[in-house]
Amino acid sequence: MLNKLRLERWTPAFFLAPAIILLIVFRYIPIVLGFEEALYTNSLSLAGARKFVGLNNFIAVFEDPVVWGSFKTTMVFSLVVNPLQVGLALLLAELINQRVPGIAVFRAIYLVPVAISMNVTAIAWGLALDPNYGLINGIIRTLGLPRQPFLQHPSQALWSIIGIISWIGVPYWSLFFLAGLQGISSDVLESARVDGAGSLRTFISIKLPLLRRIIAFVLVSDTVVNFTLFAPIYLITRGGPQLSTHLVMYEAYRRGLVYGDIGIASAIISVLLIVVVAFVAVEFIVLRPRH
């Protein structure tokens, strides 16, 4: 009897162990190593050797206007892209949740961008937005409107990047909302309708509150994904023009892998990690379930 009890107590641990071990090995240990690496600098005269510099790398990060600029750009970018993607994803989910003939076809069409890798998407959109030979400018010209520089101008580049990643992000996150919407009992919706609630009222007063947990999950995941966005910047704009798309991950990449300064790169990533955790904590508090 006692044995059985003891066994039962350990069963959850047994099932959780693989996931926890993987998390520790592939997430927590690298995070600790990253923080540690940020306290060192590569020796500039002996391959593989390194020198302890305390918090100097962090001080350097805060003093460098380019790094600071990349944090500011990333902040503006996140404050726009996350609410935008979550809002549009909700709207899209509500639209493709309608019961009309042939809706499955529409759902498939909207989900196509999700099936294409970010790299291919980035390169394809980079070509489509070319100022001279891009498809989009071709369409704009056909409509008799002036050509747009898109990725070539500091006032439009970041917005173009937001558009490109939302092309994937919106349908992807809408999948989660669609699943949530389909999980709402038809009895609830039916009684709302009987009580005279219109679609908008039902959406705001019934569906949104019931989707609260999913919204929290999507917002947090989207925040993390977008704070660490790298591929389209690396592939299309390389941080330009005039550093307008110079996001933190790209700056960290440059420091670490182009200039070979792993210490500074680790310090940048460590600061970014703290910022992301702070953001996510606020989101969790605001969206915590009300019991």
Partner: peptide, 24 residues
């Protein structure tokens, strides 16, 4: 050289796109 080249590449790209030359 790695830093010199990378930062100048940014500058040349900006100049191609019409940024002020002296400022860049």
């Amino acid at each position: 050289y790695l830093e010199y080249e990378e930062i100048l590449s940014d500058a040349f790209e900006d100049i191609r796109n019409g940024a002020d030359v002296a400022e860049t």
